[in-house]
Design a protein around this nucleic acid. Structure first.
Lengths: 236, 236
DNA sequence: CAGTGGTCTAGACCACCGA
DNA sequence: CGGTGGTCTAGACCACTGG
């Protein structure tokens, strides 16, 4: 076939997947027990366990100690949505990435920022605004507030050559991130920087990154709707 | 500590994660080999292998047979983005979900639809348009084209009680899905149905589901930007 | 070549569930 | 209680990588 010797655990996975995709096993049905599959394929239990455990990790089945394994109710249509460094992303498409720094300054935290970054109101924060261009076309505005405790040298960076994301990664290892994606209109300044109309819808990603005990930074990323979309693929 | 007896493989995972989050291991550094970890923790190699393999699955490290294990270049800020049934989602928030069916008809496939669904141009397709409301407020328009070969009884369904997603799941097991997320303005009809202005930005998810050899359906889901956002969380 | 990870076995003990 | 999955061991053979 495609691969002469598929690993044994992959064969078991393929068998169970087949039972699901063919409809032989419907949502809620019980999958054959590990002992049964072990006999059927003539492999050790560890191997069967690995196969079914991976199916559980992928969300196709759910397992209950003592009860058994059942086909998951909704095969979650899901996939890893990766929020990546814009520089990498553009280069991967084989295009040229450039950027223009619009602001690089220290500001005082207002109430919302103070809360988000876990600092007192009025505390100093680094603030940068830049436009990212792909082959000369503006595709993202990056409006970022940074906790000075995490990246003291932030303002001295040359963000033409190193993106803030890259610098922050180097400063402090990332331990957690929260983000939300929504549709919104750009502010007047944003519209001008992106060279779009004020009524052009944009994809706005707000992202907050945490490094250990500190919130490292909060970024607002604005993408012109007509020039950018997130896409994903899910395969059983 | 929190759990008196953490499984051995979890302890190994926690150790390596700690090395990464603390900065002792930077991106690109090599992680101790399985043999080394095995000695350090006094466990069998299978246990160490499981620990490191899971870290690789989570994307924290990459492994190369023959070379070794290295800390991944960018800890991907990512998380499972689940595209779920709107009915479930609203109920989970403890709110009431209702819907209004605006259209339920047969149409002829235009070029774009024919391509997307893998049918000839002009072939009959089922077409439904409905509005989903959360506590009486419109939060989504679902504009869907269905391949009649997959769900012949589609037009006869009562979509007040069963969502199209649910019905299609029952008809044909899902094997693949593709989606894209973008920001766009609603059409005049969509704006009216959602009770928003024509200039209100919307999140538009286009989703194509595949069942075996057939493309089952293509859906365009329009969310008012002010009332809906996708959010996610990533933890090391 | 020695070292790495990928896979596999044939046992084992345990915690849990349902009858 | 018997059956389930969760974990673990102490070996093993292999394919691949690097020097």
């Amino acid at each position: 076939m495609s691969t002469p010797q598929l690993p044994a655990y992959e064969q078991v996975k393929a068998f169970v997947k087949g039972q699901i995709t063919s409809g032989a096993l419907q949502a809620g049905d019980t999958v054959p027990s590990e002992a049964a599959l072990q006999q059927q394929f003539g492999v050790s239990r560890m191997t069967v366990n690995r196969a079914v455990k991976e199916l559980a990790t992928e969300g196709l089945v759910t397992r209950q100690r003592g009860s058994g394994t059942v086909v998951a109710q909704w095969h979650r249509i899901s996939s890893m949505l990766a929020v990546r460094d814009i520089h990498e992303e553009v280069l991967e498409r084989g295009h040229a990435h450039t950027s223009r720094v619009l602001r690089l300054e220290t500001v005082a935290a207002d109430a919302a920022l103070a809360q988000a970054l876990g600092v007192p109101v009025g505390a100093p924060l680094f603030h940068s605004v830049m436009v990212h261009l792909e082959n000369g076309v503006a595709i993202q505005i990056e409006d970022r507030h940074v906790n000075p405790a995490v990246a003291p040298g932030y303002l001295a960076q040359d963000f033409q050559t190193t993106t803030p994301t890259q610098y922050l990664f180097a400063c402090a290892p990332l331990t957690e991130a929260r983000y939300s994606i929504e549709a919104a209109l750009p502010s007047a300044a944003e519209a001008k920087s992106l060279d779009i109309g004020r009524s052009a819808p944009c994809l706005v990603i707000t992202r907050c990154t945490v490094s250990g005990a500190h919130v490292a930074s909060q970024a607002r990323l604005v993408y012109p709707g007509a020039r950018y979309s997130l896409s994903g693929n899910f395969q059983l």
